[in-house]
Simulated scan of single mutants.
Amino acid sequence: MPFAATKLATVYTILALIATAANIGAQDLVVRAWSGQDSIPISVIVGTGVGLVVKYILDKRYIFRFRANNAAHDLQTFLLYTVMGLVTTVIFWCFEFGFEHLFHTSTMRYLGGILGLAIGYVAKYHLDKRFVFGPRAA
């Protein structure tokens, strides 16, 4: 792997870890703050939203070096980024809820979430590179 590709993969991994920590951290905060009915699905939705915003900000700046022409262009790009994220969110949620169903512990649910996010972020990089931040994005 050439140096530039190795550096990109390393930076992407670090940023994915930051977004993963934001996602899982937000989930944990929601569950700790409210343990009522549906607290787990609500925490996963909140965590997904937090992770999405954090990842978008980091990706556009440090991975794709993207600069929007204006606020409307940035919003349009974020919406397209979100659409690409729907595909990978299915992977993430299947792992997280699958681990919850199989093991019935928060530790294993979070592990499933981390694994799902890792797999999803690899796919998301390729989708974002091609459809969100690629040549047609400018």
Rank of each mutant, 00 (worst) to 15 (best):
L8P: 01
D38Y: 15
G25W: 15
D59G: 01
H104Y: 11
V31P: 00
R136F: 10
C94T: 14
G47A: 04
V90M: 11
P2M: 14
S106Q: 15
V50N: 01
S43I: 06
T88A: 02
N23C: 05
E96A: 10
E100V: 11
R32S: 03
T20K: 06
W93C: 02
F97E: 06
G36T: 05
W34H: 05
G134V: 07
H101D: 07
V11W: 12
L52C: 03
N70D: 08
C94E: 12
H73V: 03
A123I: 14
L15G: 00
S35N: 12
A21T: 08
I45D: 01
A137I: 07
I63V: 06
T77P: 00
W93H: 08
A26P: 01
A26G: 02
I42M: 07
V44M: 14
L127M: 09
L80N: 08
V87R: 14
Y81I: 07
K7G: 00
A68K: 09
S106D: 11
T20H: 06
T13M: 11
A71N: 07
N70W: 13
T82M: 13
T10E: 03
V53A: 05
L29Q: 04
Q76F: 13
G116S: 05
I40V: 13
T6R: 15
A5H: 13
K129W: 14
F95G: 01
R109Y: 07
L8W: 12
V87N: 07
N23F: 09
F103H: 09
V31I: 15
L8C: 01
I114Q: 05
V53T: 06
V31Y: 10
S35L: 10
A138W: 15
I24K: 05
S43K: 11
S106G: 05
A72K: 14
G49P: 02
S43D: 02
G85W: 14
V122Q: 05
E96H: 12
I40S: 02
L15K: 08
D38K: 15
Y62K: 08
L111S: 05
E100N: 09
I63N: 02
A71P: 00
M84S: 06
Q37P: 03
V30P: 00
V31Q: 09
H73P: 00
G112S: 04
A16Y: 08
K7S: 04
G120R: 11
R61S: 04
V30F: 11
A123M: 13
L8Y: 09
G36R: 12
A72G: 06
A138C: 06
N23V: 04
I18K: 06
I119K: 09
D74F: 09
G120P: 02
V132D: 01
G120I: 12
D74W: 14
R32V: 06
Y110I: 10
D38H: 15
P41R: 13
A137L: 07
L52E: 02
A5R: 15
G116A: 04
Y81M: 06
F3Y: 15
Q27P: 00
R67L: 05
A33F: 11
F103R: 09
N69W: 14
T77Y: 10
Y81S: 01
A22L: 08
Q76M: 13
G134N: 05
L29Y: 08
L127Q: 03
L17V: 07
G113Q: 08
G49D: 03
